[in-house]
């Protein structure tokens, strides 16, 4: 074994933090969506790393489900973006505030 587990966990944490920054600072709703995908992937990396280091396949089965949920989320999320764009003619999340009061 040549790459220690904390390296993978650290990389995953860095990717997750970049995803958080993307969600909090970007205003384009599609880029926010892609940042969420990045965070899902960083968690997947943690799960695979632990699964591999512990010799347990459960972590990889869990990653399979995360991928399925991400695919479902992509389909519904992008349909929402299209519906929003049809109504408001924008993808700027500062202007999409109909749920605010």
């Amino acid at each position: 074994m040549s790459v220690p587990l904390p390296y993978y966990l650290g990389l995953s944490a860095v990717l997750f933090a970049i995803g958080v920054i993307g969600v909090l600072t970007r205003r384009n709703v599609i880029v926010v969506f892609m940042s969420i995908e990045l965070m899902l992937n960083s968690v997947n990396l943690t799960l695979v790393a632990y699964s591999s280091f512990l010799g347990d396949v459960s972590g990889q089965a869990l990653v399979f489900f995360v991928m399925a949920v991400a695919a479902a989320e992509a389909a519904v999320g992008l349909a929402l973006v299209i519906a929003l764009f049809r109504n408001k003619q924008t993808v700027n999340i500062d202007q999409i505030n109909i749920l605010k009061w």
């Binding site: 997947n44 699964s51 591999s52 991928m67 991400a70 992509a74």
Partner: peptide
């Protein structure tokens, strides 16, 4: 590539097929 390094062959293929393929094509 990192999944392959961790010997998770199936997930490495799924990552490319599902994420880089299906989801990003949709985006």
């Amino acid at each position: 590539g990192l999944y392959l390094l961790l010997r998770a062959q199936l997930l490495a293929v799924l990552e490319v097929a599902v994420y880089a393929g299906a989801i990003m094509v949709l985006v």
